[in-house]
């Protein structure tokens, strides 16, 4: 069948491309700026930034070596990866299981509970930090991996999101499975998990990025270098109040953002599909 919608005229298409490219370039600018600064000498970077001084004269790859060595980033990479991976894995199972229970199980007070979850997203976390610290201390988590992982597992956003995702799995599928004699865990594993996979991937990425970038909380709750994560090391680097090296700091920042960028790039198809599920159901 021939589509009744004409493709837009060439001039129109050119304009659209121009705008899309312009936006793309300006979106890339902060990252490009970070990378360019990371390749400059200290003197070049402290020059008042103008368009003329945007490019480094000679790329200083040594800044990356310095960042690795001065902030001991190599040492903290392991912690960051470990914490982010465990957090992601647990947060996803945590929220997916609960999301399935909340979306597909009828019980009284479901709406009320949902409202409460929304409420928790409205309270600024700034003060809660202190109280969360006291609770972590009570559990003996302070200065341990647990402090960096456990508080991130059950979030208002996570359950909100997973509930939306699982809700889109057709009930008829679940009923059919139940008639076939499957138990609830089996249904979750062989029906819900594959059907909600894109949404689960999206949550995994959100959780990973969130854990990877989190900085203020780890700073308060962990102080031993044994458990330090990358953003903390970088904060220490930039707080080396007296000796400021912008290039080294931006090199560290570049090292920091690479894993999330790569992760996003390789999972983006599933990620975007995952968002499709959620967007449509809320109202």
């Amino acid at each position: 069948m021939i589509s009744t919608l004409r493709t837009p005229p060439l001039a129109m298409r050119l304009i659209i491309y121009a705008i899309v490219w312009l936006v793309a370039l300006s979106m890339l600018a902060p990252f490009a700026w970070t990378v360019l600064t990371s390749l400059k000498t200290d003197a070049e970077a402290t020059r008042a930034p103008t368009l003329a001084t945007l490019l480094p004269d000679v790329p200083q790859w040594g800044n990356y070596v310095r960042a690795m060595r001065e902030a001991e980033l190599d040492r903290f990479y392991f912690n960051s990866v470990l914490v982010a991976l465990i957090t992601t894995l647990l947060a996803v199972t945590h929220n997916a299981l609960a999301g399935y229970a909340f979306a597909k199980l009828r019980f009284a007070g479901r709406r009320l509970l949902f409202g409460l979850v929304l409420c928790t997203m409205m309270l600024p976390v700034t003060v809660s930090f202190v109280f969360a610290y006291l609770i972590c201390q009570w559990f003996g988590y302070v200065n341990n991996y647990q402090a960096l992982i456990v508080p991130f597992l059950a979030s208002g956003f996570g359950i909100f999101y997973m509930r939306q995702v699982v809700a889109t799995v057709p009930d008829s599928l679940l009923e059919a499975a139940r008639i076939d004699g499957m138990g609830s865990f089996e249904i979750f594993w062989s029906i819900v998990r594959p059907a909600a996979w894109p949404g689960i991937t999206a949550l995994a990425i959100f959780s990973f990025i969130n854990s990877w970038n989190s900085f203020f909380w780890p700073l308060i709750v962990v102080d031993s270098p044994r458990y330090k994560t990358l953003p903390m090391a970088i904060a220490d680097l930039s707080a080396g109040l007296y000796v400021q090296s912008w290039p080294v700091q931006t090199a560290a920042a570049t090292i920091l953002v690479l894993p999330p960028i790569l992760l996003f790039f390789f999972t983006q198809r599933a990620f975007v599909r995952g968002i499709t599920f959620t967007g449509l159901k809320e109202g």
């Binding site: 399935y100 597909k104 969360a132 456990v150």
Partner: peptide, 19 residues
Amino acid sequence: GYLMALPWMFGFSVFIAGP
């Protein structure tokens, strides 16, 4: 269902609702 929601409810009430 309760079994599945339990870990979440525990984490939520301790680390989100508690503070």
